[in-house]
Design a protein around this nucleic acid. Structure first.
Lengths: 194, 194
DNA sequence: ACCTGAACACCGTTCAAGT
DNA sequence: ACCTGAACACCGTTCAAGT
């Protein structure tokens, strides 16, 4: 029957989940430790019981975003789209993962998924291709996501284009198929038929 | 013969040049308006006479970095390397240009240089390929530059690798040549010889 | 034309102290 | 084990006022 003076005790998981939801609401630039704390009805200093620094919290968020990447596909294009869509699932997801990626070369979920698909497809140099595709996806998704956000606030000069993101899907598909190398379809040169 | 009480009057150019030098010294994260002002022996508010916001100043720095991209080459790989090296010329140059790129689709120096080289090479869909290559270069250069900075401060887990950036040049070349499409060298299939 | 001074509304982080 | 309260050293930006 206690009036619950402060029953709001949290753990690492609840802090991360609240921060991830806030990221999606306000974006990376406005995701401050003080805002996260306010969302949890807690003082900012309380967060430092669960995470050593903001950097560590952001790395955890990046891990959660990349954790939802579907694995096991033998199709490189489908795998790459899965990575892109996981980045798109949260506001500024691509930028967050990109800026966090270099620090944690351990948990590169995405890269191994790509390398596996490339190997299943019989591509040459699957490791290098996997790295190249990941760099492309991160750069592409970051730019697209920025642009989406920018022209949703009318910050972009209206160049008379109907849709600013038109053609970006085409660029993505072209990039992935080019980087994946020869297609998996059986190469049957014309002179070998008949 | 006045004792020069405050002869330190600046213009847009001197502010930008000082800020660019400071970027190279301290990196993007520590490039504050107050630091830039201190470097010019001026109050922070003085900067707002020359630039409307920090964002506008950063855009100017990104423009100066991309302005030094060599143009007119018909070699796609050489053009791409020129872009990468321009980004590498300043600390956090890639990240700055990447985070600024979406806002100023007018001054895309880099993209048109690539499209020109692709056209000279006779590549198919030179516009889309130019965009894809630019996305790849920006993602790649950002990751490499981050990683260089991270392990110069020992922030990276030592995975027993001799050189962390080893192989990244290989990944870059593979990415560019794949994205550039068929080589300009005459395709001579084996069965056509002899 | 260019800058100062002071203020406003914020930051990330530390640390003793509370429960 | 988890949090408060207070402090420290910072931020970007505005605006009246000075020269």
């Amino acid at each position: 029957m206690s009036p619950e003076p402060n029953p709001a005790r949290h753990d690492r998981d609840s802090v991360a989940r609240s921060a991830l939801a806030l990221l999606d609401e306000v974006g990376l630039a406005d995701l401050s430790m003080r805002r996260i704390a306010a969302g949890l009805d807690v003082q900012p200093s309380a967060l430092y019981w669960h995470f050593a620094s903001k950097q560590e919290l952001l790395a955890e968020l990046a891990d959660r975003i990349t954790a939802s990447i579907p694995r096991g596909s033998a199709d490189v294009l489908a795998t790459a789209r899965g990575i892109r869509d996981a980045l798109f699932a949260y506001r500024d997801g691509a930028e967050l993962v990109l800026s966090t990626y270099a620090l944690q070369l351990g948990s590169s979920q995405a890269q191994s998924a790509l390398t596996e698909a490339l190997r299943a497809q019989g591509a040459t140099a699957p490791e290098d291709r996997g790295a190249a595709i990941l760099h492309f996806v991160l750069g592409h998704a970051t730019l697209v996501q920025q642009r989406m956000h920018a022209d949703s606030y009318g910050a972009l000069p209206d160049a008379g284009e109907v849709d600013v993101t038109a053609g970006l899907d085409r660029v993505f598909d072209l990039g992935i198929t080019a980087l994946a190398g020869e297609l998996s379809a059986p190469v049957t040169p014309p002179h070998a038929r008949a």
